[in-house]
Design a protein around this nucleic acid. Sequence first.
DNA 1: ATGGCAGGTTATACCTGA
Length: 268
Amino acid sequence: MAITVATWNINSVRLRLDLVLRFLEEHRPDVLCLQETKAIVDAFPAKAFADKGWRHQAIRGMKSYNGVAILSRQPLADVGSETWCAKDDCRHVFATLPGGIELHNFYIPSGGDVPDPAVNDKFAHKLAFLDETTAWLKKARSTPRPMVLVGDLNIAPLEHDVWSHKQLLDVVSHTPVEVEKLTAMQKAGGWVDAVRHFVPADRKLYSWWSYRAQDWDASDRGRRLDHVWVTPPLVAGLQQARILREARGWTQPSDHVPVLVTLDSGTP
DNA sequence: ATGGCAGGTTATACCTGA
């Protein structure tokens, strides 16, 4: 059986509840991973999603910032989360899907403005976060198991994951040091980029467009910050990947759009 | 090269995002 996993940095789940419900209705993913929900667990609109069929939920949230959630139409097992860099800041949640796939939902720190860890604590945090998650995935998840890792990783690793490779080399999200660390994380687990699996590396691909552009669509200065990775046992079962660019044009949109991947779930 | 917008909060200015 095939399942569709989606990831979306929603930038306030309460403000954009109607957009999420619209997306769920129109695209019917089996599982949706959200980031930047910006809601404590008690304020998360759990019932609205449960009423539409996404009854199984794993939610982590704090006031104002961050926050992640997994919404599923099928039961979630072994729900958990890790804290990173000694901050309990709700950037990770995981669960196991019925076919045995372990799903990880990450919101990696954005990293601030200045790409120098010596003067910018936020960038230092981002780099340390990447080191810690890489070591943890290597150690705690070393056995070759079917896993999917999704989220707003806040890094556009490839040349054509940004609108101008040269102009963004010094811009946080595309600097060489971040890209190296994300690539190390990917290599450490043998992770395969499920979207680039279907789209050649020389084709431009974005999942985020700044709110500050006068016309995001016309200027098209995007970055691919949102990712879906799978471990080797799942690669042969990959069926489809899609980035829902049109969602950036919806009324009062998030600056990120959903990314969807369809793959064999491991259930008969 | 710069600045541009958006969301949330012990709000009406300031932090975050990227």
